[in-house]
């Protein structure tokens, strides 16, 4: 029995605690699959409509700001790196370094949202926003493209906000000592969630910004 427990906790700091880390990790991954299928449904709708309205999709994608889309990709990829470095540092009991990387990740997530805000505002000022008259006057396929663009980047944006809230909670837990080098799973799973948010964005980039 005790060998089992220490096996599960066999990390850099073996520590016998009665915690089912493998079970919690399995749970986290199952949750991530539901997220994948949630976005998967939208990717499916996108593929079918793109198949039906290929020229409209290509034309509408040309309207998106490629530079902002690519910049945001670099911001998110870098935030994924700082996130994984934060987890790594905490596992090595380097609390200050871990906190610094987590704060950097939060800063990059904020940067992502600010860029997204300017991007959406620009579209809004051109009358491109779900429900506007302009979007109804566009060719059907272009209207679908922009509605999917707002739907999918919007849902992704909500995930970024949720990620930032969770990171802030973990930040306070690290400061209070509830999350530490012997109990780092909460930060690790926050990282898994964050990487998934990054992963989804990686698919959104070619589908929306690089299609023309």
């Amino acid at each position: 029995m005790s060998t089992n427990v220490s096996d599960i906790n066999a990390g850099p700091h073996p520590h016998v605690v009665h915690r089912d880390d493998e079970g919690s990790k399995t749970g986290m991954w199952l949750f991530l699959f539901t997220e994948v299928l949630l976005f998967g449904g939208l990717f499916l709708i996108y593929s079918v409509y793109r198949g039906m309205h290929t020229p409209d999709f290509h034309h509408a994608a040309g309207e998106l700001n490629k530079f902002m889309g690519v910049t945001n990709t670099l911001v998110l990829l870098t935030s994924s790196l700082t996130m994984v470095m934060s987890v790594n540092a905490l596992q090595r009991n380097q609390m200050t370094k871990s906190l610094a990387f987590l704060v950097t990740t939060l800063g990059l997530s904020g940067t992502f949202l600010v860029i997204k805000f300017f991007e959406w505002s620009a579209k809004y000022h051109h009358g491109i926003f779900p429900g506007t008259d302009h979007i109804h006057e566009l060719p059907h396929g272009e209207g679908l493209f922009f509605n999917l663009y707002f739907m999918m980047t919007g849902l992704h944006g909500i995930h970024v906000v949720i990620g930032m809230i969770i990171m802030t909670v973990v930040l306070f837990k690290m400061k209070s000592g509830a999350v530490s080098s012997t109990n780092f799973r909460m930060l690790e799973y926050t990282g898994l969630y964050w990487h998934l948010v990054d992963l989804i964005w990686i698919f959104l980039l070619p589908l929306f910004y690089l299609t023309n």
């Binding site: 994984v84 990282g191 990487h195």
Partner: peptide
């Protein structure tokens, strides 16, 4: 894109 996804899954995740 799938290669990028695989890198994130294998290493970061």
């Amino acid at each position: 894109t799938p290669i990028k996804a695989a890198l994130i899954l294998m290493y970061f995740m």
